[in-house]
Simulated scan of single mutants.
Amino acid sequence: MKIAFYGSSLLSSYWNGAATYYRGLLKALSRHGYDIVFYEPDAFDRQNHRDIDIPDWCDVVVYEATPDALMQVASRAAEADIVVKASGVGFEDEALLRAVLDHSRSDALTVFWDVDAPATLSELRNHPDHPLHEELKRIALVLTYGGGDPVVWDYRALGAAECVPIYNALDPETHFPVARDPRFACDLAFLGNRLPDREARVEAFFLKPASALEDQKFLLGGSGWGDKPMPANVSWLGHVGTRDHNAFNVTPKAVLNISRDSMASNGFSPATRVFEAAGAGACIITDAWAGIELFLTPGEEILVARDGADVVEIMRTLTPGRAKRIGKAALRRVLAEHTYTLRAELVDAIFKAHFERRTVEAAE
């Protein structure tokens, strides 16, 4: 089957947290025999920050961020058996969704893949005239980056025919234990771009604990933090490409996961970096959110902090030996239960079930 997938970027993780998710899932789906074309706009300077070449498991079409180019790639939805429009493409999202639905064949499976469901649902609740309200009636399936039952219930209440969370996971071919790298030597590291609905939590869970732990070294990776006031024991690296993620995760004594406000409030939304870090064997400290125990066991495979004071206490008492044991336990768990191979098996089953239902309905 042919899949036309319209997303932010497969080739660049620059200001694009969904890149690892797309790569892991689509590579695994290709092994089920899907012929995939990924369409991404030339936007946000991502093409100048590519961190992978065009892969052999997926074709990639980069189009200019213009209305004419958008319509040209949208017309190619007619070539596909499965048409996927992801959220957060970054250029004329509403027009793109409408155009790909208009060009999809009547026998195609149409999918809205929401990689930021809490934010999308908040926008829909606050804007009753949002175009997606109407477009949901034309979409056969909603898949989400996470969110659990609360997201499923909300989407169904808004009229979605079907909604299934497809959680982040690990690609063990790209994220795995490596040798420690002196560039990333520190006690606690955090990797994340500066975003409005995360910044206050970064201050509470990372910068304030750094101020309280003057004898420890903190490392901050990610774009946008250049003018942010920081304690003297915090070093800012700027953008860290995916090829350095393994070393960034495995070298510090511990790495920190900080959810965005919407993800933390909704719960059941483990960030990509949780599985990337676990795949490298890192000791992870995460802010608290509902559903953590579905993915990693608190206290054994991951450490949970309710606030900055908890981060301080954890870092004061965490020994290198315990950190190493937690990292090894997390690695075992994600390899057993949370790989993109397993996630792709779920997606493949969902796709096949949809077409089987159509076949049965057509025969009746």
Rank of each mutant, 00 (worst) to 15 (best):
L207F: 11
G148W: 00
G159E: 12
V164Y: 09
L170C: 08
P150F: 03
I166A: 03
V151A: 11
A179K: 15
E173K: 08
G148R: 06
G224E: 12
K217W: 09
L195V: 15
V164K: 09
F184Y: 07
E162I: 03
D149T: 13
N193S: 05
A157S: 13
L188M: 02
F190R: 05
D181G: 03
F218G: 06
R156S: 10
L219C: 10
I166M: 10
A179P: 12
R156T: 14
V178M: 00
L191T: 00
R194C: 04
A210R: 00
E173I: 07
A204L: 07
W225S: 13
D187W: 09
D227W: 12
Q216C: 05
F184W: 04
L158D: 02
L170Y: 05
R201N: 14
L213P: 15
I166Y: 04
D149G: 08
A160I: 04
Y167T: 11
F218A: 03
Y167I: 01
D181I: 06
V202C: 10
D154P: 09
P150D: 05
F205C: 08
G192N: 14
G148V: 06
G222R: 01
R156H: 15
S223Q: 14
A189L: 07
E203Q: 14
D171R: 04
N168A: 06
A157C: 08
A185L: 06
K228N: 05
L170N: 00
G148S: 06
P165H: 01
G222A: 02
L188V: 01
A157E: 11
L170G: 10
E199R: 14
V178T: 14
G222M: 06
A210S: 10
G226Y: 11
L195K: 14
L219M: 09
V178R: 02
G226L: 05
G148P: 05
C186E: 00
Y155P: 00
V151S: 02
A210C: 06
V164A: 09
L220V: 13
K228M: 13
C186Y: 02
A161E: 10
L158F: 09
K217S: 13
W153G: 08
L158P: 11
W225H: 14
P172C: 12
K228G: 01
L219W: 09
Y155V: 01
R194A: 11
D149K: 08
R156N: 11
V164E: 11
D227E: 15
R183P: 02
N193I: 04
K208M: 12
A169C: 00
P209R: 03
A185I: 03
S211C: 12
F205I: 08
A189V: 00
K217Y: 10
V202D: 12
A169S: 04
F190G: 03
N193C: 07
G222Q: 03
E199K: 14
F205Q: 12
L195F: 13
S223P: 12
S211R: 15
R198C: 09
T174S: 13
F190H: 00
A169E: 06
